[in-house]
């Protein structure tokens, strides 16, 4: 036999297709159990937020970094009397948009399905410089907080600040991230070696749920924390 013709296309799975009842009845008990937990309304989103909206920083990424900063620091400060200086997460770790409307427990699962937890790493100024270099090479809107990074038109660093101040080589900074990145995820290799590491045993998703419970309406914005001057 000889291959004579190939026809290729894709077919959308639309709601005009009938639901196969055999399949749905298998799913139903699993779904019922989930819905009990997932439908609780926690907060409200006045707009739709996507990680695709923004060049080097996004509203949803800034929200994630703020959540890790605020909720993480509450635990970190209680345990150590120290404070988090900066937060670094990864753009790829934002797994869903936040749709305009009610924010539920399920929203937190959609945006952060992974079981990753917050880790605070004590890093010297030199390693913070390596992190800035990483961010300048990555050219991606990795969520950050406490960091101001400005790149020139060739993606070279023109300014890099922590808490609004230039990085001091020998100073110790407390950088919050998650265990996936700490262990080298997304090729982030500047976390090791370090002075010390604090495992908060606090899942990012739970930090989101705790934050949403406290905030009636979220209002994240794109700002100047990570920008490129043209």
């Amino acid at each position: 036999m000889v291959l004579s013709k190939i026809e290729g296309k894709q077919i959308g799975i639309k709601d005009s297709l009938k639901i196969d009842q055999d399949f749905d009845s298998i799913i139903a008990p699993y779904r019922t159990r989930l819905e009990e937990d997932m439908n609780t309304v926690l907060s409200y989103a006045p707009e739709t937020y996507s990680k695709r909206d923004g060049h080097l920083n996004t509203a949803i990424g800034n929200l994630m970094a703020e959540i890790v900063f605020k909720e993480g620091n509450y635990i970190f400060n209680k345990r150590t009397n120290k404070n988090i200086d900066a937060v670094l997460l990864n753009h790829g770790g934002i797994r869903s948009i936040i749709s305009k409307g009610n924010i539920t427990t399920e929203t937190a699962f959609q945006v952060m399905p992974f079981e990753n937890s917050i880790v605070v790493v004590a890093l010297k100024g030199q390693q913070m410089d390596s992190m800035m270099t990483y961010l300048s090479y990555a050219k991606r809107a990795h969520p950050i907080e406490g960091i101001t990074l400005t790149l020139d038109k060739n993606y070279k660093i023109s300014e890099a600040l922590i808490q609004g101040k230039p990085i001091i080589k020998d100073k110790t900074y407390y950088l919050a991230t998650n265990d996936y990145l700490y262990n080298g995820g997304d090729r982030m290799r500047f976390f090791k070696p370090n002075d010390s590491v604090y495992y908060l045993d606090y899942k990012i998703r739970n930090a989101m749920i705790d934050y949403f419970k406290k905030v009636d309406t979220i209002n994240p914005k794109i700002d100047n924390r990570f920008t490129q001057t043209k």
Binding site: M1, V2, L3, S4, K5, I6, E7, G8, K9, Q10, I11, G12, I13
Partner: peptide, 22 residues
């Protein structure tokens, strides 16, 4: 979405055309 690719085969002695159309 669902991808759908159809491959059509003809018996060799009935081969009338030079090649495969996509």
């Amino acid at each position: 979405n669902l991808g759908k690719i159809d491959f059509y085969f003809d018996s060799e002695n009935n081969k009338t055309a030079d090649g495969t159309s996509i």
